[in-house]
Design a protein around this nucleic acid. Structure first.
Length: 486
RNA sequence: GGCCCCAUGGUCAAGCGGUCUAAGACACCGCCCUUUCACGGCGGUAACCCGGGUUCGAAUCCCGGUGGGGUCACCA
């Protein structure tokens, strides 16, 4: 069996989409699992919509996800160039070859003629397709079209009466009737190949053994197989993975919220969480575990465990997974990742000294349990940076009305004034002793302190809050709260 | 509309003819832990689209229906 070689071939017309990322991931996993290689090329034959910016974007997203490739754009290799617009001569050569061999022909039909034909077929309830009007144009007719300045496209002669069977690795045998296909365009009038043609030429020349892509490409596959046969090339294996759907069960698109990898990155999702989540959309290892590192996924991934039915993108589950990774990953790393979010919110300005970094680590440690993404961190740390922390709601206000409250606040304040520094250990001790010293139940002590210090009835452990604020700020907030309840 | 794909709880899914009175995860609900919330632990509610076959036996195989989706470009 030849060494596996797969590819991801996006068109650079926008950022990397969730669905595209999943296709890339499956290809990558398959290559890594089998010890094969992974190639990335750009299908940029749509010159209107393609851009270098999108290309850079897509590649950056792939790198961010940790999907490294062995050959292609940025990695080089013996089969380049890896951008289709830089391979035009190659396609033209094969197009000429097909024309000479009588496998393809020029077509001069205008857009109006084609639209009319399509609509007529649609009206009759038939599969809309090109009926082959230009197949046997006489030299005179050709000359007349040329004289009229019409630029022809090149169409492939689809053999009549055949059935093409796609042997799909995930779907089994799928057959298509050639008579429903119609001669399709392989070269546009501007000399640029169409997708169906370029993809076949490239996959063959680049030695691709397995084409793993989204199910939306399945209807195109018989056309491509016909091209392989016409050119006398062996077909690769095909594997069509089902689509990722939005909550409304239609193909994911912009109106379904965040759909690009970039957006999730900006919201503070971790690449390993996204990879883990995406791997589980349409694939399952079969066991009872749900959390897998990229290494484990590489180990476990096989095509026979890819599901056939489409999968709805469930943000709740992504959130859970991402929160899980945020909680279990090393504190330093999550701190490093959180810093940009804190800077953007204006909570950190200036240089991050070792002392400040240590404090940031405590800060992150105090709130990481609450997060399902890093962007959410800002709404949990405001209590540490605010100037004033008045009670935020009636429940909080009520806590401060207790008659024991002034004494509680005063007691802790007294201890704070005596201190220059405050670490977690000390805070724990002071807090632990407080109820007994005051002769009060814990709740009557801790709740007022919590509200006085944060303005809220919920939040991180008090022994974490105290050191983060420092004795001075704690004392200040206690004083202000005391002022408010008098 | 033609062609094609798909069909297990709200969602992701295991199941590949008997061990299914159907696993696991997310979400939801309850309890515990925590003198807060969250995290964590334990437990619970909740599913084989319908109808015919095949078979001793069908969530699993076949056919039909229904439903959902994809695709029908000089886009990929």
């Amino acid at each position: 069996m030849p060494r596996v070689k797969v590819r991801f071939a996006p068109s650079p017309t926008g950022p990397l989409h969730i669905g595209g990322a999943r296709s890339a991931l499956f290809n990558w996993l398959y290559a890594r699992h089998t010890g094969g290689s992974f190639l990335v090329r750009m299908e940029d034959t749509d010159r209107e919509r393609s851009s270098r910016e999108s290309e850079e974007n897509i590649l950056a997203a792939l790198r961010w996800l940790g999907l490294d490739w062995d050959e292609g754009i940025g990695a080089g290799g013996p089969n380049g160039p890896y951008r289709q617009t830089e391979r035009l001569d190659i396609y033209r050569g094969y197009a000429q070859q097909m024309l000479d061999a009588g496998l393809a022909y020029h077509c001069y039909c205008t857009e109006e003629e084609l639209t009319a034909e399509r609509e007529a077929l649609l009206a009759k309830g038939e599969m809309p397709r090109y009926l082959g009007r230009c197949r046997n144009l006489s030299p005179q007719e050709r000359a007349r079209c040329e004289a009229a300045g019409r630029r022809p496209v090149l169409r492939f002669k689809v053999p009549a009466g055949q059935t093409v069977v796609v042997h799909d690795q995930v779907r089994g045998a799928v057959s298509f009737d050639c008579d429903g296909i119609g001669d399709f365009i392989i070269m546009k009038s501007d000399g640029i190949p169409t997708y169906n043609f370029a993809v076949v030429v490239d996959d063959h020349l680049m030695g691709i053994t397995h084409v793993i892509r989204a199910e939306e490409h399945l209807p195109n596959t018989p056309r491509q197989i016909l091209l392989y046969r016409a050119l006398g090339w062996p077909e690769p294996e095909f594997a069509h993975v089902s689509l990722i759907l939005g909550a409304d069960r239609t193909k994911m698109s912009k109106r379904h919220g965040a759909t690009s990898i970039e957006q999730y990155q900006e919201l503070g999702y971790l690449p390993e969480a996204l990879v883990n989540f995406l791997a589980l959309l349409g694939w399952s290892p079969g066991g009872e575990d749900e959390v897998f590192s990229p290494e484990q996924l590489k180990e476990l991934f096989t095509l026979d465990r890819v599901a056939k039915s489409p999968a709805v993108f469930d943000l709740e589950k992504l959130n859970w997974l991402n929160g899980h990774y945020i909680r279990q990953c090393p504190l330093e790393r999550i701190t490093d990742l959180a810093i940009p979010f804190l800077q953007k919110a204006g909570y950190i300005t200036g240089e991050i000294t070792p002392e400040r970094y240590a404090r940031l680590k405590s800060l992150v440690a105090a709130v990481r349990d609450y997060l399902s993404n890093l962007a959410e961190i800002t709404q949990h740390v405001d209590i540490f940076f605010a100037q004033e922390t008045p009670p935020v709601d009636d429940e909080a206000r009520a806590v401060l009305t207790g008659e024991q409250v002034p004494a509680v606040l005063a007691a802790l304040r007294e201890k704070m004034v005596a201190l220059n520094e405050l670490d977690e250990e000390t805070a724990r001790m002071i807090l632990k002793k407080l109820p007994r010293e005051l002769g009060l139940g814990g709740k009557k002590v801790y709740m007022p302190l919590r509200v006085a210090l944060t303005g809220r009835t919920h939040g991180p452990e008090l022994y974490q809050v105290l050191p983060l604020l420092g004795p001075e700020k704690v004392a200040g907030r206690l004083a202000r709260a005391a002022g408010r309840c008098s």
